[in-house]
């Protein structure tokens, strides 16, 4: 699943993620945050299967930790629960901490979706014109860590096959140093190879063009238009202050006015565009398959 979203034009996907992440970070409404959290989780499930639900398990301790840290440093609020070292622990501060923890987890889940969809090829395509060296650097950094980890594992296994598992702390430190030494040598060699290879292929020469498979189709245009209209409408509705929640000195609760409900609906529709695309594609596919 997820092909329908993956084949969209990189600009469309990038704008979608930018909107999601910015909205999740700036909106003060718990309902909008909950909608964003749920939508991010649904999209991640669509993209990488039900195992994405393990993020729910991570979220619980993260939210509790954020609430605990916030109450330790922020004592504002009208509802005093108890006093620790003379300073009040308030209900508002607990709520605010939990909301911040949820913001954190929501953004993490959106970025998990982001890394599934925005491959380094797409990032190169988006930003190569703006800053070729920066986007080249960015995509090299992105693959640097997994590459080095993989190399280190290879070297480690080769060492273990030749010399066995090291015994004791001293042996382990010695083995670690051997692995790092080999890893450094290999990395130097690879860097020199990469530089040679890039020079041979004419990197940095004037008139060199890059080929990309991305084409802005009618579907991309339609999705982008719907997305921009929904974003503008949701931003305008949120701008009226209908969904704003105050946390201090008293938590103002969840807004349920007509404008607020309209905002929540538009926001939910906006965030679920990719998931809806993928599911539609899936339904269409199984329908066509069933007719064969």
């Amino acid at each position: 699943m997820g092909r329908a979203f993956d084949t969209l034009h990189p600009w469309v996907s990038f704008i979608f993620f930018a909107v999601c992440i910015v909205f999740s970070m700036v909106s003060s409404s718990p309902v909008m945050l909950a909608v964003s959290f749920a939508s991010a989780l649904v999209l991640l499930c669509v993209l990488s299967g039900v195992k994405a639900l393990r993020y729910l398990l991570f979220s619980v301790p993260a939210i509790i930790a954020a609430a605990a840290v916030n109450t330790a440093f922020n004592h504002e609020g009208a509802t005093v629960l108890l006093y620790i070292n003379g300073n009040p622990i308030t209900l508002e501060s607990v709520i605010y901490g939990a909301v911040s923890g949820t913001v954190l987890m929501t953004v993490i889940i959106w970025f998990a979706c982001f890394s599934r969809i925005m491959t380094s090829e797409k990032i190169m395509f988006l930003f190569a014109k703006v800053s070729p060296s920066l986007s080249l650097l960015f995509s090299m950094i992105l693959r640097f860590v997994p590459q080095v980890t993989a190399k280190a594992r290879q070297i480690n296994e080769a060492q273990r096959l030749s010399y066995g598992t090291p015994a004791g702390l001293y042996g382990r430190i010695k083995r670690g140093l051997t692995v790092i030494y080999a890893l450094l040598l290999r990395s130097f060699e690879d860097a020199a190879d990469t530089a040679d290879s890039m020079k041979c292929r004419g990197y940095g020469l004037p008139g060199r063009t890059a080929f990309s498979r991305f084409r802005f189709t009618l579907l991309d245009g339609a999705v982008l238009a719907v997305m921009l209209v929904l974003t503008a409408a949701a931003a305008a509705a949120a701008g009226t202050g209908a969904v704003r929640s105050a946390y201090f000195p008293l938590f103002s609760g969840i807004k349920t006015g007509p404008y607020a409900v309209i905002t929540y609906t538009l926001y939910a529709a906006l965030l679920n565009i990719p998931a809806a695309l993928c599911l539609t594609e899936e339904i269409k596919w199984s329908y066509l398959k069933s007719r064969i």
């Binding site: 005093v80 629960l81 108890l82 006093y83 620790i84 070292n85």
Partner: peptide
């Protein structure tokens, strides 16, 4: 936590 004094309002 042992260094903290906890009191109920």
């Amino acid at each position: 936590l042992c260094g903290c004094s906890v009191e109920l309002p």
